[in-house]
Amino acid sequence: MSVFEGFKFRKVSSVIHNLDPRVKFFFVCILFVMAIMFNQFLALVVLFFIPLPFVFMARVNRQWLRSLRGAALLAVFIFATNFIFGYFYPSSSIPHVDGAIDTSMEYFALFERAAAMTLRFVVLIASFSVFFLTTSPDHLGLALQQSHVPYEFCFAFTTAVRFVPVLADEAQTIMDAQKARGLELESGNFIKRVRNYIPILIPLIVNAIRRSLELAEAMESRAWGASDKRTNLYKLNLKRADITMVLITVLMLIIALYIWLFIPVPSLTSLLFT
């Protein structure tokens, strides 16, 4: 099932993969903050290039591009919305332009503005996908746990991830079985097609409930809840690479704050038309 393909984490080892997930999350959050801070096209272009070295170091370029492609439709939508709204309400959303939009410069400014908003979204996708592509769910669960998230939630999270491929297999089996009994999935109008999936969903849900009961039994049998002070086989330790990464991130934030406060970022329009 290709839908679930994206959730499967492949074990790869690289400097970026081995970074502490908390550090990576910090980095991504700072990028997020920076993308919100700036609304100039040129600044956002620079922000877009920041995650690139990490993508190449982690050797996940192909998957990363795929996730960007996945966001393309939404990006087009955001661009169109911004463009149209900017056209009808020009004064509020476009700087340096007064009155109705009619000159080429004003059109260009409008275009730049819409592109910047779209790029902001793309920067968010680009940085968060680096995080999710290079962090194993196991590590993520561990990071949650060491951040004092209650263990029950961490356990629920890792177990859910562990059962995604199992449920995907099961859904495929049920689909094959129902098709073998004459169920047609790809026929009729939209509502009919959705209804076609009911005979797939019911056994899937029933099986999942039954499975969860068995899981609960197995957990109980292995001393679940025996002690309040649960220990963990693994522990996340900040290594030198992690500290370097934190420093880079903090430095980035300082530079960004400085620019934000003291240096006005020029717009492309003002550079080209004046």
């Binding site: 292995r222 025996a226 002690s227 002070k229 649960r230 220990t231 086989l233």
Partner: peptide
């Protein structure tokens, strides 16, 4: 991690 599950629950040192 699975093999360690019961031990983690019983709070055994790492």
């Amino acid at each position: 991690k699975d093999v360690a599950f019961g031990l983690e629950n019983s709070a055994m040192p790492r």
